[in-house]
Structure formats: C-alpha cells, structure tokens
Design a protein around this nucleic acid. Structure first.
Length: 220
DNA sequence: GACCAGGCACATC
DNA sequence: GATGTGCATGGT
C-alpha cells in the first residue's frame, strides 16, 4: 500500500516536471517578500498580489521595520488591489509585529528555529493558517514541508487519490510520508500542481486532457 | 453579470 | 467536527 502511494506520487512528479519544467517559485526578491506575499495571496489571484507588492515597493514599505511603524490604514491603502485589504492589513501587521518583537525583524533568525516549533508559532498568529504557515516555511525558509492548497485538493480528488473527507493534514501527510523530505523537490512539486490545475482543471473538456488522467487510480 | 482567485477566523449547529 | 459566512478587488 505505502509502496503504491510512493511510486504514484513520484510518478506524478516526474510526469509534471517533464511536462512543465522548473517553475521558479516563489517569485520574490527576499524571504520577507515571500512572507508578505503569502498573506496577500489568501483567496486571491497572484496577479493582484503583484500589484499590491509593487505598491509597497514603490512606497519603500517592503521591510519589517517600515511596516512595523505604519498604521494599519496606510498598509490597507497600499495593498488594496489584493482584496480583503482591511483584514489583510491587520494580519500583515500582526505578522510583522511578531517578526520584529521575536527576531528583530530578521527572517534568517526566524528561519533558524526548528520547523515544528516555528510552524506552531506562525499558526498562533491571527491570519496565518496552515497553507500560509507552510508557504512561509517552504518558500521563505527553505524547510522541507509540503504546501497543500485548494488546487492540490482539487487535482488529487478529481483523479481519485484522496476521498471526500481528506483534510489539510491528511493530504500533507500523504506527501510527507511517501516522499523524501527535500525542500527543492517540495517547492517544485507544489508549483507544478498549481500549474497543472491552472491548465487542466478549470473546465471539464480541459480536465479530460489532463496528463494525470492516464494514471492508475485508487481511493483510500 | 456571474464566477473565481496560490484562505482564514468566527459563529452556529 | 462540520458547515456557513464575511472579507473585497480585478480578470474572464
């Protein structure tokens, strides 16, 4: 059973890598920019996150110290294109407060913390949920943790790899239990699934041409 | 004009 | 513990 999952998950990765190649994620100039992007991208198209980040850069606000000293209202104004801006401005501020107070605003210092402990810390911040925390761990800190998102659920479910009741932790365990804990590979794998879903999981006709459709299926 | 986008917190049952 | 709802802009 576990061999089967391992083989299939490795097979999918090879297939997607051959089809789409390196995805060059996360598109950011610094770990802190990843942190900001991870909050802003919540239920939001990346194109709109880019606009919000561009606004922050243009205002010279894309640093922990600068954001720390700003009122929430100013941050909200700048990140408006990413949607949910009042909520996200508060959450971003809480994240920055945490970073400044615990690590002097230094993401490298934050990333030195042991993975599980850091994950728990991040999850205790209001506005940081599973996916956001794991995105920060993987894409800002290069820690080997698998990021699950709605695309991952959609793709796995549509192809019969998970059942209706699979939760975030179940899906994350599926990957973590059956693959090498390799940050570079986890980075690529998640990005490849997103690319696959964007290309093949939006409509039914597209879905039928999905590169995964020929794979054997199983349901837990 | 409806629907979705690289979620999360909170209320309610 | 599961499900529903608010948050909000911008592209298709």
């Amino acid at each position: 059973m576990s061999t089967s999952k391992k083989v299939q998950l490795e097979h999918i990765y090879q297939l997607l890598y051959l089809r789409f190649g390196k995805r060059k994620w996360w598109p950011a100039d610094s770990p802190f920019e990843v942190v900001v992007g991870a909050v802003l991208t919540q239920n939001t198209a990346w194109i709109n996150v880019e606009k919000a980040i561009a606004n922050l850069k243009h205002a010279d606000m894309l640093s922990p110290d600068k954001l720390y000293s700003q009122p929430v209202s100013n941050i909200a104004r700048l990140i408006k294109p990413s949607g949910f801006y009042n909520q996200k401005a508060k959450h971003l501020k809480l994240m920055v407060d945490y970073l400044v107070k615990n690590y002097k605003g230094n993401t490298d210092a934050m990333c030195k913390k042991e993975t599980k402990a850091l994950r728990d810390e991040l999850l205790s911040i209001k506005g940081i949920g599973n996916e956001t925390a794991d995105s920060i761990l993987l894409y800002a800190c290069n820690k080997p943790i698998f990021v699950v998102d709605s695309y991952t659920c959609r793709v796995l479910h549509r192809h019969g790899f998970i059942n209706d009741y699979a939760q975030y932790d179940d899906i994350q365990q599926l990957f973590m239990d059956n693959l090498q804990h390799d940050a570079v590979m986890f980075n690529e794998y998640h990005a490849l699934i997103v690319e696959l879903a964007k290309n093949y999981c939006r409509t039914k006709p597209l879905c039928e041409q999905c590169p995964l459709s020929e794979l054997p299926r199983y349901i837990d």
